[in-house]
Each structure stands twice: as C-alpha cells, then as structure tokens.
C-alpha cells in the first residue's frame, strides 16, 4: 500500500511557505479526507528501499551560486512512466538530468540532498557516472543521431561498454523495440542523418535501449516532432513500459495525461528581493488524480491554463 504522508514537521520548518498559505492549506486539508501537503514527498513506506528505482529526498541542484531547483522529494517505482511537467524554468529538465548525472557535464553544477538508485546514493564519490549512464539511458529533446550509419548509432552504447560479439542481434532487437526495424532493416549501413525527425528520435530511443538500461530518461522527446511522429513515440513508450522504468519531461500536459502513470508538477518560485527563480516540486501523485482533482491550487491553475 502506498500512503501519502503529510509531513507537518517539514512544512512548519520550511521557510518557503508563508503563515497565510499554511493556514489555507490546513483549511483545505480539513475539508479533504486525505491530508496532502504541497511540495512534499511521496514515500512508499511499504516498498523496500531496494525495490524503488529512485528515492529522492531533499534534492537541490545549483549552478554556481544559483539554486535552480530545491528540496525535491520523489519516489519512482519500477516499470512506470513518470511525467515531469511545469512551466519553463521550473527545473524539471535539471531534475531529470540529475537522475543519470548528466548535470556533471556542466562544470558549475552541484547537487545537494540524496538521490538513491536502488538504495545506492548516485552522488556517492565512489560512483562512476559512466556506469550510471549505462544503466540509466537518456533520450534528448532534439533528435541527435551521430553522423554515422544507423547500425553504428545503435551499436554505439554496447561498443563503448566493450561488447564486440553479438552486436547484430542487439541492433536488431533494439530497433525492433523502438518500432524502427521494418523501416530501416534494408539500409542499416546508410547514414542516420538522412532520416526523418521522427525516425531519428526513435533511433535515439533504440540507441538508448541497446545498452540494456533499466531506466530511460526522456527530455521533451517529442517537442521537435510533428503530431504524427509524436503519436508514434507515445505508442512506443506504452510498449516500452513493460520493460523499462521511464521518466519523461514534457511541456505538453495532454501528453503527460495520455502516457504517464504518475505526474510531478513543478513550478517556479520567485524571490521578491533578489528576483531569483527557483524550481520547486508542487505536487506529485498519480496522473489521473493530478489532472482531475489536484490537491494544490497552483496545480489546478496550471492545468486549467490560468497560469503558466
């Protein structure tokens, strides 16, 4: 069983919520049968830590002195699709990239809090980001095929992992899983640059799953695609869910509603004095509830189009 734990202590400790807001929240809580605090964690207390794919607590990401996103608490269960939505600048991509340490590539980026992957802290100093990324693959906003053949694109991950034999099988099964095999099986040695945008993005997915990861991170994978190509990717995600845990960042609320099991709504908090913008996790619950009956007013405003 999953229970949403309101954590009153954190709320009262947190300086981020004003007294008025707190009072309002309490009032709402009194009406609602379930008490849910905004920006708070979902903790699967009945699921062993090692069964959760990710357990994020109090995660903040900084770029230099600038805090891009703060105090994120999320638990990700296996073989689900989790969508991260929110207005631009809310830090949802930043959070996504901290799941496979892609933020390491930005010299000034720094992470606070803990991000457990199967109970192992991803930011432990013994952890090698390369090993992390081989288990947690990534698909990017813009399709980015390498200027190589289709075959070499898909075989790239296994090859850098040192695999030399059986590449043909890996390429074939990955392309099949990515629903691309039938279209490209006769031109595996042609350059990937000549493919359409939708094909390129499915190739990126094939490339990501060829390394046999457990998790796929998708950073607005459809934002550069037309509606038909988008629909194909969404279909594909529903199929991939049987094998992979998927996290997707999207600016398209309908897409989140269509494909995801759970949705996290991020928003921006503006500091009046310094005009600094920090991303916060407002609400994280199952998708149906978030879009039909959100607990937080800000979520409601966003999904009904009054804000964002």
């Amino acid at each position: 069983m999953v229970r949403l734990l309101p954590s009153k202590e954190r709320l009262s400790k947190g300086s981020r919520v004003s007294a008025e807001e707190l009072a309002a929240d309490v009032a709402v809580d009194a009406v609602a049968s379930e008490q849910t605090a905004p920006t708070d964690a979902i903790i699967d207390d009945d699921m062993p830590e090692s069964d959760l794919v990710f357990n994020v607590s109090d995660l903040s990401v900084y770029y230099g002195d600038f805090r891009a996103v703060r105090d994120v608490n999320m638990a990700i269960r296996p073989k689900e699709i989790t969508a991260l939505i929110g207005p631009s600048g809310c830090g949802k991509s930043t959070v996504l990239r901290s799941f496979n340490r892609m933020n390491d590539l930005i010299p000034t980026a720094r992470v606070e809090g803990t991000l457990l992957y199967r109970g192992v802290d991803l930011y432990d100093e013994r952890v090698d980001p390369v090993e992390v990324r081989r288990r947690i693959g990534m698909v990017f906003q813009k399709p980015n095929p390498f200027p190589k053949s289709i075959y070499d694109n898909v075989a790239y991950g296994p090859r850098v992992a040192g695999q030399k034999k059986g590449l043909d099988d890996v390429v074939e099964s990955s392309l099949k899983k990515a629903a691309l095999w039938d279209e490209v099986k006769d031109r595996l040695n042609e350059s990937a640059i000549g493919m359409s945008g939708g094909q390129q993005q499915r190739l990126s997915i094939a490339r990501a799953i060829a390394g046999d990861p457990e998790v796929l991170l998708m950073d607005e994978p459809c934002s550069a695609l037309d509606p038909i190509a988008t629909a194909r990717i969404e279909e594909l995600m529903a199929e991939l869910k049987d094998e992979y845990t998927i996290l997707i960042v999207t600016h398209n609320m309908q897409q989140a509603a269509r494909v995801s099991d759970r949705t996290a709504f991020y928003s921006v908090e503006v500091d009046e004095k310094s005009d600094r913008r920090t991303g916060i996790l407002v609400e994280y619950t199952n998708t149906e509830k978030l879009f039909s009956n959100p607990d937080d007013e800000r979520t409601e405003n966003y999904i009904t189009g009054r804000f964002g």
Partner: peptide, 8 residues
C-alpha cells in the same frame, strides 16, 4: 545493485 556495481 550495490555501490560496487556503480563504481568505476
């Protein structure tokens, strides 16, 4: 998974 698996 153990931390050794994620170590370099």
């Amino acid at each position: 998974i153990s931390i050794e698996a994620l170590a370099s």
